[in-house]
Each structure stands twice: as C-alpha cells, then as structure tokens.
Amino acid sequence: MNKKIQFTLGMVICLLIGVYWFWQFTHTTTINIQNTETNTFVEAEVLINSFLENEAQSNKQFKSKVVEVTGIVKTISFTNNRYTVILQGKNNDHHVLCDLKALDATSIKSISHLKKVRIKGICKGFLKDVILLNCIIINHKSYE
C-alpha cells in the first residue's frame, strides 16, 4: 500500500512539474518597452564607435539592456513588413538599426530623413551595425 501511495505521489509531482514547464513555456508575454526603465542613454555615434573599438566590452555594457539612443535619421525602411529606423554613424558603413515594436505609422510620420530622433529599445549586439529591437520613438507626442 505504501509503495502504491509513493508511486502515485511521484506521478502527481512529475505531472505538476510538466504542467508548470508547459505553462511557463507557452504563457509568458513579450516585454513592454514603454514601461521598462532605461539602463543607458547614448548618442548613436558613441554607441557605434564603442562596438567598433571593443565588441566584447560593449556587449557587457549594452547587450540585452534597455538603451535610449539619440541620432540622425539616415533612412526609414519598410522591409519584411516592419519599420526600421536607421541612424547614421560617422561613415556610411556602420549604423544603428532600430526595429520598431509595431506597425506604428503615427510615430513614423513624426520623424524624417536627417532629423534628430530619440529611440528606446533593447540592444541585441553588433554585426556591421548595432541592432536594437522592440524600439519606440521617444520624442513622439504619444510617448511624452
């Protein structure tokens, strides 16, 4: 009888762990960047230069952090059904790619080519450009 209880108890515990894992794996929603506190404020050129000079150190400083970056708009691209604001660096080879959180046409209309903009997003690292995801345009009226 004792062995039967122990077996049943074991099975229940395993089932509970399985349900917990499954729930955790499937029911967590994505981060709300608007309500998340900014970790670092930085100029686009400074951010690019930092990664160019020391990528490992910059990853420690910026990667997975909420970064508010100020820079000049080089282009606004609409690729893969998403808006990306590309901030220019000192030369034409390295930029900051800011992938906007949603198809927010209103905030996109508030910025234009060669104008200064402030964007908040999560820094993912560096390829040829610094990559920021989940971005929102901070100096847009609806976020002020």
Partner: peptide, 30 residues
C-alpha cells in the same frame, strides 16, 4: 529580421552573419 549578408559578384562568394538573440518568438519565455 536583422541578418547581415554580403555577396561578392566577382567570385560569387556569399557570407551571412546573424545574432542568435535577435530571433523574435511569440512568447518571451521561448
């Protein structure tokens, strides 16, 4: 959506690089 790739049209060589943490899932825990 931020994969970098360069193709050299003189010798048809292709290079691709991507950040693994830039993959976007429906659920944050995934």
């Amino acid at each position: 959506n931020q994969v970098l790739s360069i193709v050299n049209l003189e010798n048809n060589e292709i290079a691709i690089s991507m950040l693994m943490n830039a993959f976007v899932f429906k659920k944050a825990l995934m």
